[in-house]
Design a protein around this nucleic acid. Structure first.
Lengths: 243, 243
DNA sequence: GATGCGAGGGAACTGAGTGCCCTCGGCCGG
DNA sequence: CCGGCCGAGGGCACTCAGTTCCCTCGCATC
């Protein structure tokens, strides 16, 4: 018929990337509309109309309307699990999951403007926040599963794995979000390193107290021989009392 | 007509709670169908047909189909924020958020069979898992906001607040889920106390290590006075070395 | 040139969620 | 005693996301 006259013209084999020409077009069209009109005010039909493709094709590339907002998380999650699976089990487990978390940051930092736009979007739209939560949850599960493997045999191994994974994710997100709030100014990795350093120092080598006892009874202090006295005193103080 | 003969009979002003006769009927009908036929295989029309009410009324009580699975979380969240707001800022912030988390556990423990059924449901249905995440996220935000208030002025206050809130939630959920997996056998609160104890010992009175130092600098071990010597030694060992 | 095949297009359908208006039963003021 | 107000609930029709089924076209292969 006379249809199909408008869109699929000059991008037959040229243009941007090599792999998915149409997927990117959908993302671009979607974000244009989301930004100028709002997420909920934009229907899938609007998007495919602007991209000049069929409605069915949208759902070929994105299982839901929400997925178009997070087009690269699937790949990033795969990268993370691959990284964790690459059997390099020499170093500290906690350090390793922190490194895994940095992969996510790198993805955000690759496209700062895109990331900031998406952040503004997800902050406003409850449905997108919920979707983002499920994405974050999958990252957290990946970290937790890795730690569970490393902690197998430890007493409370799964508990520690879950808690540390949650702490790593929370620290990462805290730094990431403050970077996103600043419109992607400054060095994101510095803030994340600092935040992850906090978690690592809290959980790093081993649990600081025996897990099952009351803290207030008696104290054993182990210190480096060359640690300054005031540091030792400060530590005892802050461990015991301190409001 | 001959309808409305079944349900709204002998509880006109008597019985259990005073407020919602029909809301509970909807929850009951929904769970009957969810359990015998599956969540996604059950339409809202099925539910309202079984409950003998109009479709429109369902959405009067529950903003979405998912909400009927978590009928009491809204109230529980309100309880938690009220608890945190009740200005009793005397004790440790971390202890206080742990107590707040115990409120959630109490809600689950009030109806063990219901909680276990719901757990099985959410474990299978991805949509319900996502919804549960958004619920949990709101609890976590409530805890984090409280801690941010208490930590105002501290260096890295918001970071610590977010991380601790996440750790508390993760510990709580770890214990809760293992209790749910065991069909609600045993004492749930004991497991949760233990899990929260872990978090409290990691973050409790004060950070176990100074936040910004390397962990191997100064370490403080606290033990009960009557703890067997071998336990103390084991703890020191695991704190210092241990791959 | 026939065949197969994969990518895309296009109805038509289901089901969640919403807006609008109707009814019914109780209550209150005239 | 009566008319009107009010709030809970019912019914209907609509939008839109997501799915199913089938068609077409281009392309490579035999």
């Amino acid at each position: 018929m006379s249809s199909s006259s408008e869109a699929p013209r000059r991008d037959e084999k040229t243009a941007t990337a090599a792999k998915p020409p149409m997927r990117d077009a959908l993302v671009a069209a979607a974000f244009r509309l989301f930004l100028e009109r709002g997420y909920e005010q934009t229907t899938v039909d609007d998007i495919v109309a602007l991209a000049g493709v069929g409605r069915r094709s949208f759902f070929r590339y994105f299982p839901s309307k929400e997925d178009v907002v997070f087009p690269d998380h699937e790949r990033c999650l795969a990268d993370m699990t691959a990284f964790l699976a690459s059997g390099d089990d020499e170093d500290e487990p906690v350090r390793r999951v922190c490194d895994a978390a940095r992969l996510v940051l790198r993805m955000y930092a690759e496209n700062p403007t895109f990331s900031v736009q998406r952040y503004r979007l997800t902050k406003q739209v409850p449905g997108l926040r919920a979707y983002e939560l499920s994405v974050v949850w999958r990252y957290e599960r990946a970290l937790a599963e890795y730690l569970r493997g490393r902690f197998a045999g430890r007493r409370d191994g799964t508990l520690q794995a879950d808690v540390i994974a949650a702490a790593v994710v929370a620290a990462h997100n805290n730094a990431l979000r403050s970077w996103l709030r600043s419109d992607g100014q400054g060095e994101a990795s510095a803030a994340v390193d600092h935040a992850l350093g906090y978690v690592q120092s809290a959980f790093g080598a081993a649990p600081a107290y025996p897990v099952h006892e009351q803290p207030e009874d008696v104290v054993v202090v182990v210190s480096r021989r060359d640690a300054p006295l005031w540091r030792v005193v400060q530590e005892i103080e802050s461990t015991l009392g301190r409001g």
